[in-house]
Amino acid sequence: MIAHTTERILQTVLVLLAISFIAFLLVATLGDPLTSLLPPDASIADRQDLIMRLGLDEPLLTRFLHFLNGMLHGDFGISYRTQDDIGPMIATRLPATIELAFASLLVTLFVGVPLGILCGVRPNGIISRGVMLVSIAGITLPNFVVGVLLIAIFSVHLGWFPSFGRGDTVQIGGWTTGLLTLSGWRAIILPAITLAAFQVTFVIRMLRTQLLEVGQSEHIRFARARGLSERRIWSTYAMRNALLPTITMLALQLGNVIAFSVVTEGVFAWPGIGSLFLQSIQAADVPVIAIYLIFVGAIFMIINLVVELIYPLVDPRLKRSGA
């Protein structure tokens, strides 16, 4: 078990190194930082000075090591666009993205799970059929279409919710939260639903398939043959089996939620790291793009690692296999 854990952690570190190297190559080879950073009338001395300051005259590998070393010490380099440090840039925008991801996860849990159970237990009911029909829309409609539709209906037509921004925020330590104000809550609803649209349908379909499959299984038939109540059979005997893969998939999707928030944040002008990424692309701000990629990669890897390490605690079958 410990050997397995160490091995997985090492693998994660290796993959992160690889991602960092690719991101670094982006910074090192794309665009010319001197033209971005220096005013057009800069002197040769200014140029030399900047080259020295950014270490652009050093060999590639040395620069990569500097880059890594900097990241480990919280120095993520500077933006070509604003010349600000990238670390604080991301830090100020991170709470918005995390709160949005969290809100959409809640939507997924409270809408997707109950509907998924309903569709799995009563696959032929009228509600189930309706849900499955609508869920096709959730799977096929791209995020930005859902977002624009919601804005058109609930912001423009009905005027219930704002169409952009986070509303009023409150500063708590280094964290700005929109969850403590009414306008913050109103602002987060539409983006959270938009971001959750895919996850919700995903969870519904996943749970439904799992429950239908488990419902057919021999051990459920045996439970019926022992006279256990339908309620007990579904709530315990089938759900336990169906939830395991669903929880895994949901946890792994959390990475996607953060990564895909780019589009949703773009549609709703949500001031998170997703819109930062979009702005950076428009301005060819390669260092910010690179750090964002590393950051998202790290989130993905860490979530995967955590899920994999806690899975044996949930599923007794994996406990002693050592695999």
């Binding site: 299984s217 021999e218 051990h219 459920i220 038939r221 045996f222 439970a223 043959a225 022992r226 315990t236 005997y237 336990r240 089996n241 395991l244 599923d315 007794p316 079958r317």
Partner: peptide, 16 residues
């Protein structure tokens, strides 16, 4: 009482 054929699949895998 009903005894099923295959003991490998008759028991619920996630309950003691």
């Amino acid at each position: 009482g009903f005894v099923f054929q295959d003991p490998m699949t008759s028991l619920n895998p996630v309950l003691s």
